[in-house]
């Protein structure tokens, strides 16, 4: 039985009068790994920003377990945001803080845990992403791949129900990218989080995702919404199949 965790209803995204996408409708089930796919400039990152509350939609709504995010009060919205974990493309770690302090911030803000307990949790989160021993390092002292993993440790600090990733594989070598995919799968399976990813990495998409939406920059709307492996092999829309087969689809 499906368990709708997020639903996007009649969503239109715009910058001023310039419409990027219109009438987006799709649902995401609990523990899905959902990818937002589409060509450059189709509004993937904008959709992610609207979903996490960094930009407001032109019209339409996004509902988390039935509650509209953008119709909620500021207090309700802040409360909902505590269930979000976001990994930004660059990692977006706070450069003046150590990795441990980066992970600890949300725990200090939103829990009554003691200093020791917070420290243990931070060490655990960093160990989960393979950064045990790097607690006292600053972001500028570690590599790009490590920054990504540290960003992930910060994103899962509060055991979020919803995990958002903006281009998680960007700038990583294929092996690191594969390890990150495995980590995302492992965290989804163990934490039971719903994962939403913006990515261009086809290998990554087919490895981890079980649901997707395809946005088209020309028609400015979604062309398909299903399991990306199914869309690659059986989608009626040639544009979608061609994109997912790296331009090698047959008409």
């Amino acid at each position: 039985m499906s368990d709708t965790h997020i639903s996007v209803d009649n969503l239109t995204m715009a910058y001023g009068d310039y419409i990027i996408q219109r009438n987006l409708n799709f649902t995401i089930n609990r523990s899905d790994i959902f990818v937002i796919i589409g060509g450059s400039g189709c509004g993937k990152s904008t959709l992610l920003k609207i979903m996490i509350g960094l930009k407001s939609p032109a019209t339409g709504s996004i509902n988390y377990q039935g509650d509209s995010f953008w119709d909620a009060t500021d207090f309700q919205r802040d409360h909902l945001r505590r269930k979000f974990g976001v990994l930004f493309q660059s990692g977006a770690l706070w450069s003046s803080m150590t990795l441990k302090e980066n992970v600890a911030l949300a725990l200090k803000q939103y829990t009554d845990l003691s200093k020791n307990e917070i420290s243990e949790l931070c060490s655990l989160k960093l160990a989960l992403v393979g950064l045990a021993g790097f607690e006292d390092y600053y972001p500028n002292e570690i590599s790009g791949g490590m920054k990504k993993r540290a960003g992930l440790a910060r994103a899962i600090a509060m055991d979020p129900e919803y995990l958002f990733f903006d281009e998680p594989s960007a700038g990583l070598d294929p092996l690191s990218s594969r390890l990150l995919d495995d980590l995302i799968l492992e965290l989804r399976d163990s934490l039971g989080a719903t994962v939403i990813i913006v990515t261009h990495e086809l290998a990554s998409i087919f490895t981890i995702a079980n649901n997707s939406v395809f946005l088209d920059p020309e028609t400015k709307t979604m062309l398909a919404n299903d399991d990306p492996k199914y869309l690659r092999d059986h989608c009626d829309n040639f544009k979608v199949r061609n994109f997912l087969q790296r331009g090698e689809a047959k008409q």
Binding site: L124, A127, L128, G130, L131, A132, G133, F134, E135, D136, Y137, E186, D189, S190, L191, G192
Partner: peptide
């Protein structure tokens, strides 16, 4: 629970590299 088992395994999957930790 299975999830707890997996996280516990993950937490010990990568050991801290020698000399990485900093003592204050």
């Amino acid at each position: 629970p299975e999830g707890a088992h997996r996280l516990l395994t993950l937490a010990f999957a990568v050991e801290a590299p020698e000399g990485a930790s900093r003592s204050s």
